[in-house]
Amino acid sequence: MRFFTILVILTGLQLSTMAQQIGREIMLKVDEQTNLPDEYQEMEMVQISSNGKKMNRLLKMYIERKGENRNSLIVFTSPADIEGSAFLTIENDHREDDNWLYLPILRRSRRISSTDITDKFMGSDFTYEDLQEEDLGDFSYEYLGEATVAGKAAYKVEAIAATPKKKQETGYSKRVIYVDKASSLMVKIDYYSPKGQHIKTFEAGDIRPVAGTEKFRTYAMSMTDLQKDHKTELHFSTIQINNDFRSDMFSKRTLESGI
C-alpha cells in the first residue's frame, strides 16, 4: 500500500515536472518567433465601450531590443488634434525606465515619472504588463493540454509568476495562454485577477507572414475587459522586422524633431 502511495506521488510529481517542461518548450518557441532585434508597426487602436461608442487612434510604433531591455517609440498620426504627439520609453538595467512625452502644443518633450505596470496603456484595455515582452525567466509554465481556438489547433499553457519581484508587481494570479500550433504565436490569453476571477481575454488572429521574412505575426488583436464590458482592438496595417533603425532613433532629439 505504502509502495503504491509513493508510486502515485512520484508519478504525479513526474507528470507535473513533465507538464512544466513541455509548457516551457512551447513558450520558448513563441519567444523564438517574436523576440527579434527590432520591429516596426503601424496600427489603428480602436477603443469600444459597452454602448458601442468608439474612439480611434492611428499610431506608429518602433521597437528595439537590447539585451534584456526594450526601447520603444510611439508616434500618433491621427486624430488630427494629437498628430505628432509621441511617447518614448527607454528601459534601463538597474534603475527605473525613462519616459518622455512630446506634445506638439508644448513644442518640447517632458519627462514623465514611470507608471505602474498594472496601469492601463493609453486608457486602453491593455495594461503596460500586457504589452511587455514575455520574460520566460519570470514565470512557470505548465502545459495543460491541447485546445482549439477559432478552428485551429493550439496548446494550452498556464503561466504563473515565479520570481518574488514578478509576484509582487503583476496584476494577475495566472494567465492561461493558447499558442497556435502552426505559427507558435499566442492567439488567446485568459487573465485571472488576484482573486482568481477571469477578468480579461486577449484574442489574436489574421496570422500572416511578415513580408520578405519567414516570421509570422497576428495582424489583429483585441483585449476585452469582462468586468466593464469594454474592448480595445488593434489592427495592424504594416509590420516590418529587422529594420536596423538608425542609432539615434530612440532619443529625445528624434522625439522632438519628428520622424
Binding site: N99, I112, T115, D116, D119, K120, M122
Partner: peptide
C-alpha cells in the same frame, strides 16, 4: 493624451 499616458485612467 497626457492624462491617458500618465497611468490609471479608471
Amino acid at each position: 493624451l497626457l492624462y491617458a499616458v500618465s497611468g490609471s485612467s479608471g
